[in-house]
Amino acid sequence: MSGRYHRPHGWAWFLERPGYIRFMVRELTSFFVAGYLIVLLVTLGRLGGGEAAFAEWLSALSGPGWMLAHVVALIAAVWHSITWFAVVPQAMPVYLGEKKLPAPLAAVVMGYGPWLTVTAVIVWWVLR
């Protein structure tokens, strides 16, 4: 944009508004999701490496450090999911004729509903 004076943006721009901080927290939770995916891939790799390798990996994972890492990753992943489901009604509005489905209901229909359904199917499949 033209003009004479451009107000400078410092590195701490995200501290200027609470909304910016919430945005940064939402974005940073994706690192924990990615980190957990890497752990899952390593687990699959160890599974391919035979029973002994897998058992050794599992016992390593049950150490306090890994447990703490998993709890942190779980909290980050849940927060990541909640924040994205909250904006689903904006990105994918559902129209019923002239009326837009109210945001909380749309979040359930488009986000929480399918999420809980898939989770229930996986839990049933694992526990059957």
């Binding site: 944009m1 033209s2 003009g3 004479r4 004076y5 451009h6």
Partner: peptide, 9 residues
Amino acid sequence: PVERDLVVS
């Protein structure tokens, strides 16, 4: 961008 005082471009 600020032109002058409260005036922006």
